[in-house]
Design a protein around this nucleic acid. Sequence first.
DNA 1: GCCAGAGTACTCGGATAATCCATGTCCGAGTGCGTACGG
DNA 2: CCGTACGCACTCGGACATGGATTATCCGAGTACTCTGGC
Lengths: 138, 138
Amino acid sequence: MNNSSRFTVAIHTLTLLAHSGPDPITSEYIAGSVNTNPVVIRRLLASLRAAKLVSSQGGPGGGWQLLKDPRRISLRDVLNAVEGSSFFALHSTVPNPLCPVGRTIQSLLAGPFKSAQEALEQDLERTTIAALAERAKG
Amino acid sequence: MNNSSRFTVAIHTLTLLAHSGPDPITSEYIAGSVNTNPVVIRRLLASLRAAKLVSSQGGPGGGWQLLKDPRRISLRDVLNAVEGSSFFALHSTVPNPLCPVGRTIQSLLAGPFKSAQEALEQDLERTTIAALAERAKG
DNA sequence: GCCAGAGTACTCGGATAATCCATGTCCGAGTGCGTACGG
DNA sequence: CCGTACGCACTCGGACATGGATTATCCGAGTACTCTGGC
């Protein structure tokens, strides 16, 4: 759970798309607002495109645009798009099955982890991209 | 928020300490149960020690032991110890202040992020290290 | 004036280098126990 | 027999390599607009 800023940058990008209106904007322009490299934006948007949140178009006048109404895109959707389904990672190596704790810890943690993730996502669902874009406009 | 297993390994280690009784156990032994390198355990336990959850002792018969009653250590405490206070990371570089979105996005996200983190931690508080150790024992 | 064609500028997408972070290895510092020696 | 001092084994802690992943740079592929030439 080493905090990377992928989630934040994804929200930033989607808010920028919602803020800019229907015309597509380029990854270079987005990178200018986020203050990073365009390729980072492209890779991030590629996962958002896989989640059917945005589309891309090459050529002059091309760029990226929203596929869904920003009022119907919640932070929960964004998190799932950029982080995958399982939020808490289990051990990277298999614990020692000869140890009573190592043998059972993963199954013991499954419940609390799932519950915590659900609580997190339900809270994130309260905020939409449209709400963020609206506040940035005002 | 690239999922690392620090949180899981920390829980595993504390559960092992609670399970093993009052005598200190070594980082090498813990590493055997987690199936990783002892130095990884030491670095992780160093942050748990900073949170006053465990203590370390060198020399023969030394090792690590709990400083608090495991019934009073919740997963919330563990998360705060290993991940720091802020769970969601903001941008690693400063967004462009000339952009309306870039200028405001961080302050706009502060509220939802804090709320989501609070929801997450309240759920994690329901599970204690003692409960996990008890289940591993049975 | 209008249409067709080539040319050009722009954007994404993938391949390849460079950088950064996490992990692993090694050696030193400190501690406690055991042992041996002297009283 | 008892106390003290030395030595040794054990454990943590920090410094230095190593591997993988993330990030940055470069070049190619595709598209839409524009300009030019001909009718």
